[in-house]
């Protein structure tokens, strides 16, 4: 039986769109012929790490593979009283990407707090974009064997990366 669900590959989502309405949903389906009932529409959520010198909201340095907790400041540790200040280079790089993908760039865009509790999320929320992302409705043309294929981009938004969790047996660090 096929069901719409999460794809196992990193950050990809499969959305199942039923071709026929209720009969297809209600009746048991033959697992060998899923595509007769379902049209796969595959969207990709792609994370791009920007080559900046400092973090997006803090002047703390970035270095791949640095020892744990060696590149922090009061903000990065989520200490009380700290406030984020946005890295201008992040805006420049994302705008460049937006222009390169023929996106519509918003004159007014906004950040939002996305809440979840997790040990590598020091503030208890991730600063991300939800309504009014910076870039929308762009596209990327790729050359395939059959010719040019246009990949549509729903949105490009800016968000911070959380920290990192290492799992060791029954505990995490």
């Amino acid at each position: 039986m096929t069901r719409p669900g999460r794809q196992t590959q990193a950050d990809g989502l499969v959305q199942g769109t039923p071709r026929a309405s209720s009969p297809a949903l209600d009746a048991p389906r033959d697992a060998k012929k899923p595509l007769e009932d379902w049209e796969p529409v595959i969207g990709l959520e792609v994370h791009v790490q920007l080559a900046t010198h400092t973090k997006i909201f803090s002047p703390s340095a970035i270095e791949f593979g640095a020892p744990p907790n060696s590149l922090t400041d009061p903000l990065v540790m989520g200490l009380p009283g700290t406030l984020p200040v946005f890295n201008h280079t992040v805006l420049q790089l994302v705008l460049r990407l937006g222009v390169a993908t023929s996106s519509q760039i918003r004159a007014r865009s906004r950040f939002a707090r996305k809440h979840y509790f997790y040990p590598d999320l020091p503030k208890g929320y991730q600063i991300s974009q939800y309504e009014e992302p910076l870039c929308e409705s762009g596209h990327l043309d790729v050359i395939l064997r059959g010719g040019l294929k246009r990949v549509k981009l729903q949105r490009i938004h800016i968000e911070e990366d959380a920290g990192k969790t290492t799992h060791v047996g029954a505990r995490s660090a």
């Binding site: 540790m77 989520g78 009380p80 707090r113 809440h115 509790f117 040990p119 503030k123 208890g124 929320y125």
Partner: peptide
């Protein structure tokens, strides 16, 4: 409720 989410017993 948002600002106090950071008080989670993890870092301090």
């Amino acid at each position: 409720s948002s600002n106090l989410a950071r008080f989670d017993g993890v870092r301090y």
